[in-house]
Amino acid sequence: MELEEMQAVWSEMSTQLEQQKKLTDKMITMMTQEKYRNRLNKVAYPEMIGAVICYTVAILILINLSKLDNWYTLLSGIITVIILLVLPIMSLGSINKMRNLDVARNSYKQTLIQYAKAKKRFQKVITASYYLGFIVMFTIMPVSSKLINGKDFFAETKSVWTLAVAIPLAITFFILFSRWVVKCYTNNISSAESLIKELEETT
């Protein structure tokens, strides 16, 4: 379809839309009210739930820090707490950056650039979160073993299943999954990068 034909179809649609005005004053007023917006619900739920879980676990570990009575369990506990505290800040912060762009003052080009940059940052945060999450998966094992069962994970674990099967299995799974994650996000990041480059080059 040529542009001229597209313009003709568009114009016909515009005429039809003009004849079908259906919005009422009440509907418009309701749309302007915060309570009818989906914004609260729009806050990324998975990240919010994740943040609550992270902080709950971090607080539990901090309260029971004295129970981690040898250096390696204590170190695991500290690493776990740091990651659990940092992860939600990183992900919610990057989401916030994407949401708080000035849509009223910015031009379309500025918004596209800022949004692409924020999106790129968000994708990187997700990738980093994934790796940090994997570290937590290991550091939390001795901590939870100590806090829940009172056992020293390294000294008292005798099960062949845990050491010889479960951990290599987890690592294999991580390697396979990380390949997919990296591939997926690399594509998104490079498409955001090319858009930024293209827009920043133009006046």
């Binding site: 509907m27 749309m31 989906n38 729009k42 849509v103």
Partner: peptide
């Protein structure tokens, strides 16, 4: 146009569903 287009591109795709919705479907 500026506000509408900017809002459209900055809206997170996953930010949707649920919430009170005014029935503009019929419109």
């Amino acid at each position: 146009y500026r506000v509408a287009l900017n809002t459209a591109i900055t809206r997170l795709k996953k930010e949707k569903r649920r919430g009170k919705r005014i029935e503009i479907d019929k419109v």
